[in-house]
């Protein structure tokens, strides 16, 4: 048996090991929730007279639409033409628009995607230039990955509280959007990240400055989104503490921000910056980091994102 077959067998055996049943409690909860959940209305096919009426109606709508389009074309043709540079190009959003962490309905596979104006959409591009198209494209495909980079433009997350805007010139992927976190990453380094975090701890910068497990700059003052802020540059040695997988809690790690259900920590071998400021009475933390090898390339992207931040009221 060769090495590949050994690996396949080991993987099969390992995967076979583990729970194979849903617990009775979870099953009971599921059944109870199903009983409390209404089914979506079934779409009835139109038949007979109603179908005939529908066809007549469709024809009438088509004729009306054609007349309106013709009218607009005639009006446009009569307007004086301007000479000069053309309007700003309209960026098109990629079809693989990032899926939001909070969205649930979009996980339903459908054969015909529909446009959606649900509240839990990706940050919507603003009308300022550059002007990406509105999210009128079909909703994201059921497959959530890979996440395509955001088209250049200015985006506003209204899921994050308070709403936050940022501008990207490209190469940035939206990885998550929640009321307490907007998570961006460059498309060249999946370990690098730029986060805007709703935080409830004050004095994070000073706490980090006192932490002798990491190397830090002196805390400094800066302006972010026209507001006074405090920042600190941070770095952790590659062997500072164990490198945890994304969902592993590494007890020895230097925690940057933490709540009951989540935490951010400075990864070993990473460099970054932590900035705290107050927006409309809310403590906001900006935390970006990248592994040292990627940092030189990532730093200007993070600086541009930071400089573009706005908190529209």
């Amino acid at each position: 048996m060769n090495r590949g077959q050994d690996f396949d067998r080991a993987l099969r055996d390992w995967l076979a090991d583990g729970p194979t049943r849903l617990s009775p409690r979870a099953l009971a909860e599921t059944v109870s929730e199903i009983r409390a959940t209404p089914q979506r209305a079934r779409i009835q096919p139109l038949t007979g007279r109603r179908a005939a009426m529908s066809a007549w109606l469709a024809a009438a709508v088509a004729v009306t639409a054609a007349v309106v389009v013709l009218f607009i074309i005639v009006i446009r043709a009569q307007e004086p033409r301007e000479v000069g540079p053309s309007a700003a190009p309209t960026a098109q959003l990629a079809s693989g628009t990032p899926q939001l962490a909070t969205a649930t309905d979009s996980s339903v596979p459908t054969s015909s995607p529909t446009s959606s104006a649900a509240a839990s959409q990706p940050p919507s591009p603003s009308s300022s230039t550059p002007t990406p198209s509105l999210f009128a494209s079909p909703s994201p495909p059921p497959e959530l990955a890979p996440l395509d980079p955001l088209a250049p433009g200015t985006y506003t997350s209204r899921v994050f509280d308070p709403p936050v805007s940022f501008t990207t010139t490209g190469g940035v992927v939206l990885r998550g959007e929640r009321p307490d976190n907007v998570w961006l990453e460059p498309d060249f380094a999946p370990d690098a990240e730029f986060n805007v975090i709703g935080n409830d701890e004050r004095g994070v910068v000073d706490r980090l400055a006192r932490d002798d497990r990491i190397t830090t700059s002196k805390p400094f003052e800066l302006i972010v989104a026209d507001r006074p802020a405090r920042g600190i540059d941070v770095a952790a040695a590659p062997d500072a503490y164990p490198y945890g997988d994304r969902n592993d809690y590494v007890q020895e790690a230097v925690i940057v921000a933490q709540r009951a259900q989540w935490y951010f920590y400075l990864h070993p071998g990473a460099k970054g910056r932590v900035i705290e400021l107050t927006v409309a009475g809310t403590q906001v933390l900006i935390f970006y980091e990248a592994q040292e090898a990627d940092f030189e390339r990532f730093a200007p992207i993070a600086a541009d994102l930071l400089a573009s931040l706005e908190f529209p009221t």
């Binding site: 899926q99 962490a101 994304r246 259900q261 935490y263």
Partner: peptide, 8 residues
């Protein structure tokens, strides 16, 4: 994705 940083 939702629990990306959840303490495991």
């Amino acid at each position: 994705r939702n629990s990306r940083r959840w303490a495991s």
